[in-house]
Amino acid sequence: MSRIAMFGIDVAAAGLLVFALYFPRHRRRDLVAAYLVVNVGVLAVASALSTSRVGAGLGLGLALFGVLSIIRLRSTELDQHEVAYYFSSLAIGLITALGTDVAPVAGLLGLLLAVVYVGDHPRLFRSYGHQIVVLDTAVTDPAALRAQLERLLGARVHAAAVQRLDLVNDTTVVEVRFSRRPRTAAAPPAGSPDSADPAGSAEPVAAAPAGGHR
């Protein structure tokens, strides 16, 4: 009965991870099956090895090596949060397969799901962003590059790593990490009383040149 309860806890925890946390936030359908299969596969392998004569440590090590190799050698690139969900799905299967008491297992799974909920919450560091920008000019000066990126993105640039600098085609490909600036109040329309007041007017924001980034 304890083993059946563990299987039920695994199904419930994996369902919450995939259908309540991952899919509503990221909407990537193909990874739903991947997370569920990894979870159930690790649960089945770990449960079988725990009752067999084969060394459980060796078997679990080979199973984990196989799963992590699949994640690492995929042809499709995974984002870091998707890798975190892979590890969470794997951890849920291991914890429920090797656990003996319901209460400690439920507590560990609750802690894991809570960490995923908070760490991947859309409101956590919502003003920070990451983007690959292609400039239609070759910029070799780091200070000038940062100033141009801040003007184009309308944000504060924290890091700018040049991935490709093409002096022949006059392009720069740069990976940018930035934080969006708080929005300011919109300028009053032309001809209104407020627009004639120099103290209440705001400087216009320079428009980004067309084709400056993609």
Rank of each mutant, 00 (worst) to 15 (best):
I4G: 10
I4E: 14
M6Y: 09
F7C: 11
F7A: 12
G8V: 11
I9G: 11
D10S: 15
A14E: 08
P24L: 06
R25C: 05
H26S: 06
R29F: 15
D30W: 09
V32C: 09
V37M: 09
V37W: 05
V42D: 04
V45M: 06
A46E: 14
L49H: 06
S50I: 07
V54D: 12
G57K: 10
V67L: 11
L68E: 07
L68K: 03
S69I: 00
I70P: 07
L78S: 10
L78Q: 09
D79S: 12
Y86N: 08
Y86I: 01
F87N: 12
S88C: 14
A97M: 04
L98Q: 09
T100D: 11
D101W: 00
V102G: 01
A103C: 01
A103R: 08
P104G: 02
V105F: 00
V105N: 02
L108G: 12
L108Q: 15
G110Y: 12
L113S: 10
A114H: 04
V118I: 05
D120Y: 00
P122T: 01
R123M: 04
L124M: 03
V134G: 12
D136I: 00
T137H: 11
V139I: 13
T140S: 13
A144R: 13
Q148A: 14
L149I: 07
L149V: 01
R151P: 00
R151L: 02
L152A: 14
L152W: 00
L153N: 03
G154L: 05
G154K: 04
R156E: 09
A160S: 05
V162S: 03
Q163D: 13
L167P: 08
L167A: 09
V168Q: 14
V168L: 15
V168T: 15
R177K: 02
S179G: 13
R180W: 02
R181T: 08
P182D: 06
P188Y: 00
A190C: 03
G191S: 03
S192R: 05
S192T: 08
A196S: 08
A196H: 12
D197K: 00
A199Q: 04
G200L: 08
G200P: 00
A202Q: 12
P204M: 01
A206W: 07
A208W: 02
P209D: 09
A210Q: 15
G212N: 03
